[in-house]
Design a binder for these strands. Structure first.
Length: 818
DNA sequence: GAAGGGCGGGG
DNA sequence: GTGTACGCCCTTC
């Protein structure tokens, strides 16, 4: 599919969701505050730029702050002389809504005029529209342009049509004050690949210049990297300032230089700023944002680092070069070719990640009136759904509801979904069933939408999304996997799912959201609880052992020996008793489950994979030996092998006592948050192991953010320098087919240092850690007495007169009530 | 327990 | 300022 020269009109019923202007191929928009807009379109593979004008606007609840203008304020359609400063259009709606659309030729002029009037009215200077609370509603300039024209990004394009470039900096340090760029890897999805290098500090300026020239020459629509906003762009910007090289990476026709501005991420006196960057004509995409968005739903990604994520998604090539961060520059000096390969592997993985994760934001950009680059990180409710709703109201000439008007509705605020723990212990033959899109289904089935949505657009959009999503899901299934068309459908359905899931949260979002309705949200949860309760009752009546349930799903154990199809039949039978429009689905089956606490459990799949959910079962300390013990012990306990658990424990203790493990196996790693002087000032009151380890090693200098690995001896803490990275190797364990855990072999470029192999650790301390931090996570699997007996060392006396033989100990079973 | 900090990613 | 709202985890009172 390519951008067509002859645009297809948007069907009337889709105008709310997709906008109404059929202009195809928009890949970037840059709108100045003075009403100039630049639009870049990809037409038959080539870039076409056009300059347009738009009218800057904002929404107002009244004209009181601008009425002082007299004749200089005119209705939109009136002809008037050149003295007109502001124009307005009255929107139809009740008094408590944004009844006026104000326009000026420049949005700064527009805002200044309002501030002036507000100052007169309040008899004090007003310096920001924000001070006027909810009286005004503003969006960014590109949003103004898109909302008023009904255009969106990417009409008629597929993801493959985008020209995407990835670049990755390799630097001598993490901090641009302390280090410099020595290498940049660049590639794009048109087959281009290059490495730029600066082997001496003097060459860095030229390197930055060359990078910019290369980006202009390749002329991509999108620039991507992992942690682009958090690392590469700030670092690049800093180094560019040092060398006075302008970062000209924009697209011909607009401002060329990269802009950076602070984005406030939290409210309050200590609002944290993060730098955002923007450049005319290109969309800047940070794959880290996409990973966070993805994990928000799946909550299954162990870490967000590029290498970790690439492995998680199966994108990492077996030949991938791994080098620890701190070793990269050193390695470069010895073996530059290896670092070139490493950096190119990085950008390739970023491309893979983009293909895997950016399809949904791409599809969202063809619906919502916002820039593509904003849709990776924008909140789906306030950031995407609301702009779509506002655009629809403006299209109809209707006044969007006024936030303050909903305050009263918030009183009857909802309780939220319930979470229940029915049993802890070990269950076998576990089934997970859940209601597909429970809240959206309830909203649609029972027509529960925000009462302030007079035009019913919220439910209209929700219904349209639900129907279209099913169609795209079906099309994705029917087309050949990984084909362009199939990917398009899969991404579109994922995008729609994001919006569908945002609908309920948006309604309950409180006074921040224009279309919030706490009462309606409460009605949804009330009905949701009723549905869940009827499912739980049905399971109980059939004797199933309930384990845990949350808002829309339940884990339960079925009788031993049931087949998958028996389980499916049960779920279907219960599903058939639910109201029409509510679908209960058979989501999965597991060989066993350890239920620890609500939302904290371990699952064993039928192909022997161990899945651990929740922080209570994961260790924050992460000493390699403890992690290893816990994974193996979890596996044993879940198959009922109590003797195996005991043996693992004794083995681990014996390994410690006989000092069979290297210190690196017992070390833990923390990130420093205090600068040397801060720590030294507080040291007398409160000592912290990581800093003590450094001081002991004679290191009085460190930087905040440095990761320090250390272990404990009888005398104190010992620092394990980071140059040795065998910890990464030994923690990289993989389950084999027979359920055993084995170290994963991996090419490592690191050298072992003597210190990592030291054995002078405090054995008794680590035995305590093993018991209190790791074995303790199995406590829910046993009775108190059994637990005591299992995790007692030979030396410790029994608390009970007579111990039963270990062989006779059973886990606490959660079983079907026959 | 609730409230208050700190952190993620990156070399 | 092409403004604008993150969540989890650990520590502390």
């Amino acid at each position: 599919m390519q951008a067509q020269t002859d645009p297809t009109p948007i069907p009337i019923e889709d105008e709310y969701l997709f906008g109404w202007n059929p202009t195809p191929g928009i890949v970037s928009v840059w709108a100045h505050r003075d009403g100039r807009a630049l639009i870049w379109r990809r037409v038959e593979g080539r870039i076409v730029r056009s300059a347009e004008r738009y009218r800057p606007w904002l929404l107002a609840t009244s004209l009181q702050d601008v009425s002082y203008l007299g004749d200089a304020l005119q209705p939109y359609n009136e002809h008037a002389g050149h003295k007109v400063i502001l124009r307005y259009r009255e929107l139809e709606g009740p008094t408590a809504s944004y009844n006026y659309l104000l326009f000026a030729r420049d949005s700064r002029l527009l805002e200044r005029t309002i501030l002036e009037g507000a100052g007169l009215r309040l008899r004090r200077p007003v310096s920001s529209i924000n001070e006027l609370g909810d009286a005004y509603y503003r969006v960014g300039t590109v949003e103004q342009y898109l909302m008023s024209t009904g255009k969106v990004y990417f009409r008629g394009l597929t993801y493959q049509d985008l020209h995407r470039l990835q670049f990755d900096l390799e630097t001598t340090a993490l901090d641009p004050h302390r280090g410099r760029i020595f290498l940049v890897a660049i590639r794009d999805n048109r087959g281009f690949e290059r490495v730029l290098e600066a082997s001496t500090p003097e060459e860095e300026a030229q390197l930055i210049y060359d990078l910019c020239a290369l980006i202009r020459e390749r002329d991509p629509d999108v620039i991507e990297n992992h942690n682009l906003f958090g690392f590469d762009l700030p670092f690049l910007e800093h180094r560019a300032v040092v060398h006075r090289v302008p970062l000209e990476i924009g697209r011909e026709g607009g401002p060329m230089v990269l802009e950076s501005y602070a984005e406030t991420l939290a409210v309050g006196p200590e609002a944290r700023k993060r730098n955002r960057f923007s450049v005319a004509g290109r969309e800047l995409i940070d794959t880290l944002d996409a990973v966070r968005r993805h994990d928000f739903v799946v909550r299954d990604i162990p870490g967000y680092g590029l290498k970790e994520v690439a492995r998680y998604f199966g994108l990492a090539s077996p030949k991938r070069v791994y080098i620890e961060g701190g070793d990269i520059f050193e390695t470069y000096q010895k073996n530059p070719e290896l670092v070139r390969r490493y950096a190119l592997d990085d950008v390739k993985e970023v491309d893979g990640l983009s293909q895997r994760l950016l399809g949904a934001p791409f599809a969202l950009a063809s619906m919502a009136p916002r820039r593509y680059e904003r849709l990776t990180s924008a909140g789906p409710a306030m950031g995407i759904l609301e702009p779509i709703l506002v655009r629809s109201y403006l299209r109809r000439g209707a006044a969007p509801p006024y936030r303050a008007a909903q305050q009263s509705a918030e009183d009857g605020l909802h309780e939220g979904g319930a979470v229940h723990l029915f049993a802890s212990g070990i269950a076998e033959q576990v089934v997970k069933a859940d209601v597909a899109s429970l809240y959206p289904s309830l909203m649609r089935t029972f027509r529960i939408g925000p009462s302030c949505d007079r035009l019913g657009i919220f439910l209209n959009i929700l219904g349209r999304l639900t129907d279209l999503r099913l169609e795209h899901k079906e099309m994705a299934r029917r087309t050949r996997r990984h084909a362009v068309e199939s990917n398009h459908h899969a991404a579109t359905q994922a995008a729609m799912k994001i919006l569908i899931n945002a609908a309920y949260g948006y309604m309950g979002a409180g006074s921040m959201a224009l279309f919030a309705d706490g009462k309606a949200a409460g009605e949804v949860t009330r009905r949701g609880r009723a549905i869940l309760n009827s499912i739980l009752d049905a399971l109980r009546q059939r004797g199933m052992a309930l384990i845990e349930a949350d808002t829309d799903g339940v884990y339960f154990a079925v009788p031993k020996g049931w087949s998958a199809s028996q389980e499916l039949d049960l779920v279907n039978a219960i599903a058939s008793e639910l109201p029409a429009g509510i679908r209960l689905e058979y989501e999965g089956r597991y060989r066993a489950m350890l239920s620890h606490e609500v939302k904290n459990y371990a699952l064993l799949t039928y192909d022997n994979r161990l899945l651990v959910h929740g922080v209570a079962l994961r260790s924050s300390r992460a000493e390699p030996f403890g992690e290893r013990f816990l994974r193996k012990a979890l596996h044993c306990v879940m198959v009922g092998d109590v003797v195996g658990v005991r043996n693992l424990y004794l083995e681990a203790i014996s390994d410690l006592r006989n000092r069979r493990l290297p210190a690196s196996d017992l070390a833990t790693r923390v990130k420093l948050s205090k600068a040397p002087d801060t720590y030294l000032a507080a040291r007398n009151n409160h000592q912290e192991p990581a800093y003590e380890a450094l001081l002991h090693a004679g290191r009085n200098h460190w930087h905040v953010g440095e990761r320090v690995r250390f272990y404990r001896t009888r005398k104190g803490y010992v620092w394990l320098p980071d140059e040795t990275e065998e910890a990464t190797i030994v923690t990289d364990w993989r389950e084999q087919a027979d359920g055993k855990v084995a170290p994963q072999k991996k090419t490592a470029l690191v050298t072992y240092q003597d210190v990592a192999d030291r054995r002078d650790y405090d054995v008794e301390h680590y035995i305590q850690v093993l018991r209190n931090s790791y074995a303790a996570r199995l406590s829910k699997a046993f009775s108190k007495e059994s637990f005591e007996q299992l995790f007692r060392t030979e030396q410790q006396p029994s608390l009970f007169d007579v111990d039963p033989p270990i062989e006779s100990i059973e886990p606490l079973w959660i079983r079907h009530n026959a």
